[in-house]
Design a protein around this nucleic acid. Structure first.
Lengths: 170, 170
DNA sequence: TCCAAACGGTTGGATGTCCTAGTATATTCA
DNA sequence: TGAATATACTAGGACATCCAACCGTTTGGA
């Protein structure tokens, strides 16, 4: 995040789209590009808060997910489904968290294909502390006023449902 | 995007946050997580459309940016500023596009530090064709109704301005 | 005129994404 | 009962992100 540009590059792109005769898709293009940029900004903020815990957002999400389960453990395929990432991304995160001593793999008691990933005591502590940090440093000042937060939840919930993420009705 | 989950994992996470006493930040957390997931879905759609052109979104954005300049060329530092990515990301993209014959580097006429990156004839063609494909396959059916598109543009524009992206007032 | 500071771009590295392909295990169906 | 199919997870790889550090060039000020 260097010095601000004097003009909004996405508004500029939208004008370019309109100038080229693509007016009917200029607004969706701008909205989608704005989502990309907003994610990038938020990810950078989140990662700077997590860095002192030795975490990235991907690793944090797995720790947080585990911390909300009853036993602090999940089958890896379940983690992949709930985090909505490819199984190889879960393998990567578990590898790194295991190496850091925050989780441990264990075999499933009855299914030889399945590996459980569970929080260690230290993993539980780091999950709690990093969540506190995110709550106070990112989520309490998200950069959106409350009305916009509610609008985003509705708009992006509708989008995710229509994209096939889940079936729950509002 | 496998089979839909029966429940919205982000709504679930929000309930977890509320159950743990973090009600005041549960909604922003859900909004931010939804932005992350929405970006991921959109990126996957965009990349599947670009794949037949041998492009990724990062490479496409650079080609598109160049195609809107007068001479089809820009200094690399300018590209970095306008695309809002780190200079090393531009180096990476230029390397790959140059290798594919879609752009070429050239020295700046008067500033020995500066490298220009310009579209080749083939790069120009690929930029046009891939933009057409995105317009017809992604931007014409973004997954958001028009009212939501306008709301996103306003909300995310306000966010990006307050994050220091640009100074232009609405 | 010279030097320190800044700029531009690269290199090497860490990280995480998903793809393809492989192996081990479980399930289903004939 | 056995074979085909499906599932779970991994390995190797391509890709793109940004960080830290470096080198060459330009700029500005003493």
């Amino acid at each position: 995040m260097g010095t601000p540009l004097s003009r909004d590059p996405i508004a500029e792109a939208r004008r370019n789209w309109e100038d080229h005769g693509w007016s009917d898709v200029a607004a969706p293009m701008a909205a989608i590009t704005a989502i990309m940029r907003t994610q990038q900004i938020l990810l950078a903020r989140i990662e700077s808060v997590l860095k002192p815990f030795g975490l990235t957002f991907a690793r944090y999400e797995l720790l947080a997910l585990l911390s909300f389960t009853r036993k602090g453990a999940l089958p890896m395929n379940k983690a992949s489904a709930l985090l909505q990432v490819h199984p190889t991304s879960v393998t990567n995160a578990v590898d790194r968290l295991e190496r850091a001593g925050l989780v441990a793999r264990s075999p499933h008691p009855t299914d030889g294909r399945t590996t459980l990933v569970g929080l260690t005591a230290e993993g539980h502590t780091v999950a709690q502390r990093s969540t506190s940090a995110l709550n106070s440093q990112v989520f309490s000042e998200p950069g959106f006023p409350p009305g916009d937060v509610d609008a985003l939840i509705r708009i992006l919930g509708d989008f995710r449902r229509s994209a096939g993420d889940f079936e729950e009705m509002p």
